[in-house]
Amino acid sequence: MSTTAITPVPFGRRVKRFMADRPLIPLIILLVILVVILQILRPGIVNERWIANTIKFAIPLAILAGCQTMTMLTGGIDLSVGTVATMSAFIMATQVVNQDPAVAFLLAMMPAVLIGLVNGIGVGVFRVHPLIMTLGTSLIGTGCLQVYQRTVIASGAKIPDFLAWLGTGVTYGFPNALLLFVPLAALIVFTLSRTGFGRLLYAVGDNERATRLSGVQYWQVITALYVISSVLAGITGLLYIGLIKAPSLSLAEPLVLPSVAAAVIGGTSIFGGRGGYTGTIIGALILTVLTTLLTILQMPEGARRILFGLIVLFVTAAYLRIVEER
């Protein structure tokens, strides 16, 4: 007889709660809406080849956004991923001319590990804000790359066939890059949700003090995290050079801002402790489709950056509102 028990929840709050509980569904709806708009603007553009192409370009972005997701879970950010990816790609392309591919690969991954280590020690031991720290190492990395470029200017560069195949090749309608990305993504998702290390990342981001008091060595977790992030960025660089096929000193730099935006759109909180990689992958797809859309609308690069900035701001503000109402 208690009819008062069923109080109608306001529609707005119900939508908010729904979004907070299942962040993936509104994201997928947004992705579909964007694709539909694209199809309306350019009828016939959405076909098998376009989808393969979109996925190809979304994969490097998705891996870099994975670096951001993991660092953001601890309340950090990694702005050195662009420089690290560029360094690995450039070193690979220039070293493979004279060296065995395996040796070139090891040489290419060396700066990635090194920068990750410095980032991790700076953030974990010295407690520098991750943003400032990774910005600093990326400046140093760019300087090193410029010095390195002088020494190899005579030997030239070439893209290893394997990387070109991986980056641009399509087999039975599926981009070959998926061969790398699917296991990698599965590994990240598994690590974040099923392993102790993944739990630690959430714990550190959620309440650092409590985590430390329960016996976790903060600096070890953070150092490992930033090394992993850098290595992932290095692998992305190798994949990206196979896709772009033109080694330059600013190769992966344009991917940095979108990678942050993709992670934020995907529902990972920039304050740490909340989020996941599946959302980020869809965020990367959304941004890739959005970029196509903006290119079709002939929006200049500047407008694109403004849009990414506004996305980060609005999504974060909206996220705060949702959390505060709970």
Binding site: L257, E301, G302, A303, R304, R305, I306, L307, F308, G309, L310, V312, L313, T316
Partner: peptide, 8 residues
């Protein structure tokens, strides 16, 4: 965010 916007 405003860094992105101002750069753009």
């Amino acid at each position: 965010a405003t860094l992105f916007v101002l750069q753009g």
